[in-house]
Nucleic acid binder design. Structure first.
Length: 472
RNA sequence: GCUCCCUUCGUCUAGAGGCCUAGGACACGGCCCUCUCAAGGCUGGAACACGAGUUCGAAUCUCGUAGGGAGCGCCA
């Protein structure tokens, strides 16, 4: 490991003249925390070295691709603040490019047509698995001679194109995160580079595009680590430059399983709609599988400064909402009064005067993480009807009607705590608690003084009077 | 099944053979502040998966064991 870390600085510095990273999602679903983190890391790496960040849409699978996800992608990335320097490129528009390289591979006889049907392949896979062997392509079409190929073509059987994986080859490379890697080509079956319908398959298009787009560093999920030898094989066969790969640990949920819907809100859209700030989300992502000596809420430029390849974690990272909540809290507390007003504007009543709204915000801000949390207090303070919970009712009754009558009479144009206190002749909890109970319907909540300042005087009087008359 | 990856407080992590009596952050407990809840301040408990080996010395290096994960797709 010490070797790995020492080498890392070297690797990055060597290529720092031209650091190009990319984010290459497939638009078949909403952007997930895991994808978002990969995007963030790549973006940070490019920015940290004055390089470029490329966006490429991997939409070769026509069945799964949905246009709305392509749009959502742009929305999510922009929301996070990750601007791309090039793209978006769309693989569905690059068939002509791929064709050239297929041709090249065919000329070099490094690929061969495969006429096996999905059914045959599936059968073969099952039987291998059942026999306790790795489910690899059996090589049925690997050694077809030209005559046999012509015969099958004549039968109008369409073919996919398979890469002929060389035998007995040791494949070594340096992973940016995991260090030296060592694979044997014999463990890899011949894989498809072009589907029967003529579209390019992932192992091929993904690798070829990285090379063609001059991508120097690929940070991606660890699930790609054991696929990397395949992609290197393709690039080497084509004489194309091979990028440096770094495989980032997977993101898991509280149960240790890969992050998915059942772990609650984990798509960027859900998080955004729940009211989380993109700053909070970025800070959380920055610290999942990546460590930093900085414990405070960082801006994106600060993250660029603090991002270190050598601080990438090799073990899976568990996403914990409590951590997201922490960053959200930091963010809320860092809000200026104007920013806080803008943030809470959607939950505040229309046409609320300046003084009342700022009192409300002052009262409620230390208690809220999401606008939704503030909405509850908005209804209590500005809403018509108020429901009282039992402990509050009891506290109000115990205070007695005289207390509330005195208090209500002390309310003039504005309700003011010290005037009320003087009028009732009480202080401390004996004063505050019944007042809080009568005004908010509950015994707990934000500081009473600003709440009172936020509430219309007429409403304060009404609520107090209720208990002066004896509420049933 | 084969190949590869991983394992430090509950969680995110620091850790490059002696700076480790293992540090920080979140969460949790306590105290302070306080009309309450929060917020804030102070403070406490809490981890090197296990077993061998190398070494004067191992969280760190080696081997093994256990457990977890990924890949082996005409998905990406």
């Amino acid at each position: 490991m010490s070797l790995r870390l020492r080498n890392l600085g070297y690797i990055v510095r060597m290529s720092s003249s031209l650091v190009v990273t990319r984010f290459a999602p497939s638009p078949s679903g909403e952007l997930h925390l895991g994808n978002a983190r990969t995007a963030l890391f790549n973006w940070l790496l490019a920015r940290a070295h004055g390089g470029r960040f490329v966006l490429r849409i991997e939409d070769t699978d026509l069945e799964r691709t949905q246009e709305r996800y392509v749009e959502a992608l742009g929305v999510d990335l922009s929301w996070l603040g990750l601007r791309w320097d090039e793209g978006p490129f769309r693989q569905s528009e690059r068939a002509a490019v791929y064709a050239q390289y297929f041709e090249q591979l065919e000329r070099k006889q490094l690929v061969y047509p495969c006429f096996c049907s999905p059914l045959e392949l599936d059968l073969s896979r099952r039987s291998q698995l059942a026999a306790g062997r790795p489910p690899r392509y059996a090589g049925t079409c690997r050694e077809l001679n030209p005559a046999q190929i012509a015969l099958r073509r004549a039968e109008r059987r369409s073919a996919s194109l398979r890469f002929r994986v060389p035998l007995g080859q040791r494949m070594q490379f340096e992973d940016l995160v995991h260090g030296p890697q060592n694979f044997l080509s014999d463990d890899i079956g011949d894989f498809i580079v072009r589907r029967e319908d003529g579209t390019a398959a992932f192992f091929f298009s993904n690798a070829v595009d990285d090379a063609l787009m001059h991508v120097s560093h690929v940070l991606r999920g660890e699930d790609h680590l054991s696929n990397t030898p395949r992609q290197r094989l393709v690039l080497e066969a084509l004489g194309l430059p091979v990028p440096l790969y770094g495989h980032v640990s997977l993101l898991i949920g509280a149960d240790g399983a890969p992050l998915s819907k059942r772990h609650g809100a984990t798509t960027l859209r859900e998080l955004r709609e729940t009211g989380y700030a993109h700053e909070a989300v970025c800070n959380q992502l920055f610290r999942l599988g990546h460590s930093s000596a900085r414990n405070e809420l960082l801006t994106l430029p600060q993250m660029v400064q603090a991002f270190e390849l050598s601080h990438l974690q090799r073990a899976p990272a568990q996403f914990d909402v409590a951590h997201l909540a922490h960053w959200q809290r930091e963010w809320v507390h860092a809000l200026s009064p104007e920013q806080a007003r803008a943030w809470l504007a959607p939950v505040l009543p229309q046409q609320l005067d300046e003084a009342r709204s700022s009192a409300f915000i002052r009262a409620v801000l230390p208690n809220v993480l999401l606008p939704e949390d503030a909405r509850i207090w908005q209804q209590i303070i500005f809403g018509e009807a108020l429901s009282y919970d039992q402990p509050a009712l009891r506290a109000a009754e115990e205070a007695g009607p005289e207390f509330f009558l005195a208090a209500a009479n002390a309310v003039r144009d504005e309700a003011n705590l010290s005037t009320l206190r003087g009028a009732t002749g009480r202080k401390g909890a004996a004063f505050y608690m019944p007042l809080r109970a009568a005004l908010t319907g509950r015994l707990h909540g934000p500081e009473l003084a600003p709440l009172l300042a936020a509430m219309p005087a007429e409403r304060v009087r009404e609520r107090l009077l209720q208990f002066a008359r004896g509420r049933t």
